[in-house]
């Protein structure tokens, strides 16, 4: 949608929706399959089907693999470069982030962020046929938004992550440094989205509204540094989610 190209055929939208849904669902199931041992010791996740024993690991692995192959396969059939980016997202998420880095370093979220940015890049590439500056900016926007989302979450559930021995920013660098990281990251996400909006040719009115919503995000990020509390921290998490949803809607109007 962000490409503003005349691709309005129902089968394009359906294909994009189905391929991304299958690939992301497959990737999520494979992540849960690999992380079932740490999910079982974390309060927040111990009720998940794999961790609680409702589903066997083999069942989950097979389902995840089938969905991932179907999603990536459909993406390749639709357009090879689109399929390549969908596959990259899945690879970065499952192999690089979950299997390789998540249990080793808190910086793994960078790769989690990159994989999170792949769907929007894939959609953009499908629309315009190549990787362009707008696609890269939108990917960066998601990449920089991820810390606002994930780090506030990891501060809220810091004990859970410690129990599972997962290194996080709060447990490695402390809450203060994490809050500053979130604030800077929020600013960079806002700059990336705003720049993408300008390049896309977003109308001034929508840019104004985006600016207002960005001001709220920055306000919350600053409040979380200077007046830290559990409520502000989780408020920032919720606002960041709402911000990204609103920004994506505005970009597609």
């Amino acid at each position: 949608m962000s490409s503003r190209c005349p691709v309005t055929h129902w089968y394009d939208f359906l294909g994009l929706g189905i391929s991304l849904f299958l690939a992301i669902a497959g990737s999520t199931i494979l992540n849960m399959w690999y992380d079932r041992d740490i999910d079982a010791v974390m309060d927040r996740t111990h009720h998940r089907p794999l961790a609680s024993g409702l589903v066997t690991p083999l069942e989950a692995f097979r389902l995840g693999l089938v969905l991932a192959i179907l999603g990536v396969g459909l993406a390749f059939i639709m357009m090879p470069i689109y399929g390549l980016i969908v596959f990259s997202g899945l690879f970065f998420d499952v192999v690089v982030y979950t299997i390789w880095l998540k249990r080793r370093t808190c910086w793994s979220i960078v790769w989690g962020g990159i994989s999170g940015g792949m769907p929007i890049l894939a959609g953009r590439v499908y629309g315009v046929g190549s990787v362009d500056a707008v696609g890269v900016l939108l990917t960066l926007a998601v990449l920089f938004w991820i810390p606002t989302h994930i780090l506030t979450f990891s501060m809220r559930y810091v004990d859970d992550y410690k129990a599972a021995r997962i290194p996080t920013f709060p447990s490695t660098y402390g809450f203060g440094a994490t809050r500053i990281t979130i604030a800077v990251s929020s600013l960079l996400a806002a700059v990336s989205i705003g720049s993408a909006g300008l390049l896309i040719g977003m109308e001034w009115g929508f840019l104004r509204l985006l600016g207002v919503l960005t001001a709220g995000l920055v306000l919350m990020a600053i409040a979380s540094i200077f007046r830290p509390s559990e409520r502000v921290n989780f408020g920032l998490f919720k606002y960041a989610s709402l911000y990204m949803l609103s920004a994506m809607i505005l970009l597609s109007l």
Binding site: R208, G211, V212, L213, A215, G216, R231, Y239, L242
Partner: peptide
């Protein structure tokens, strides 16, 4: 923009953070 923008942000923050 500042006037109505303040209303937007205030509304959203009260929804998220409550009356606190």
């Amino acid at each position: 923009t500042i006037g109505f923008g303040t209303l937007i942000i205030a509304g959203l923050l009260i929804i998220i953070l409550g009356w606190e």
